[in-house]
Design a protein around this nucleic acid. Structure first.
Length: 225
DNA sequence: GCGACAG
DNA sequence: ATCTTGTCGC
């Protein structure tokens, strides 16, 4: 796809400069409805093995989740892992992969935080703002914020993720499947939180888990608590 | 100083 | 994230 960056900036920066960049760009994030129901969504991820970073993007058509395009790119790992600065580790691998992609998805899903970030500028925001595309973040664990309440075990249940101030809502904790750990959903850019949650659920596997397995999981979870 | 800490 | 070990269900 056509990759035109809204803001050109260096990636080889100090941690101090990286944080300053995030603070400068964070006001660019826009929470607004999608222009139309997305017909395609891109799953975006980066794996790191030793010195090798490998970015992968898969475009799926909704609602059947059929893969219609994909691209990968390998390069050196450019930045250490620092909580809150994931963009500087993953974006340099992601941009060339995007250029190889033979499609322009309606929306991007990143395995990261978006707004639910100490400076309100997680990877999903950085990605969305630089490329000026709709993006959302789905993380497997918490970086910032606190659950507004208890979460029930049924698929689809959700609670707000709040952060200090006047209880600012920075995301949602969402159960995408019965009896599984919830995910942390937050907006990246040009989407609303409700839409982000809806899309996340729509993109979750919905095959039926065999009942004996479910019962055992239920028991083992009870024992851990 | 201590605890927390996306991937 | 990646790596390793251990358990359980099918």
């Amino acid at each position: 796809m056509d990759v035109t960056l809204q803001h050109e900036h260096a990636w080889d920066v100090s941690t101090g400069e990286a944080k300053a960049l995030q603070k400068r760009l964070a006001p660019q994030v826009r929470a607004e409805p999608l222009p139309r129901a997305p017909q395609t969504v891109a799953g975006v991820d980066v794996s790191i093995r030793g010195d090798l970073a490998q970015a992968a993007i898969a475009v799926l058509r909704l609602p059947e989740l059929e893969v219609v395009a994909e691209a990968v790119h390998r390069c050196d790992v450019p930045f250490p892992y620092v909580p809150g600065l994931l963009s500087f580790r993953e974006m340099p691998a992601l941009l060339p992969a995007l250029r190889k992609l033979d499609a322009t998805p309606d929306l991007f899903m990143l395995d990261s935080q978006g707004l639910a970030h100490p400076r309100r500028f997680g990877l999903a925001c950085h990605f969305g703002v630089l490329l000026n595309v709709p993006a959302l973040g789905v993380a497997k664990s918490r970086l910032e914020g606190e659950r507004a309440g208890e979460l029930s075990v049924e698929k689809g249940s959700r609670v707000a993720l709040l952060d200090d101030d006047p209880g600012e809502t920075i995301g949602a904790v969402v159960r995408t499947r019965d009896d599984t750990n919830p995910v942390y959903v937050s907006i990246g850019h040009r989407i609303t939180l409700d839409e982000a949650v809806e899309i996340t659920l729509q993109c979750s596997p919905r095959y039926k888990i065999p009942e004996p397995t479910r019962a055992a999981h239920k028991l083992s979870r009870k024992e851990r608590e």
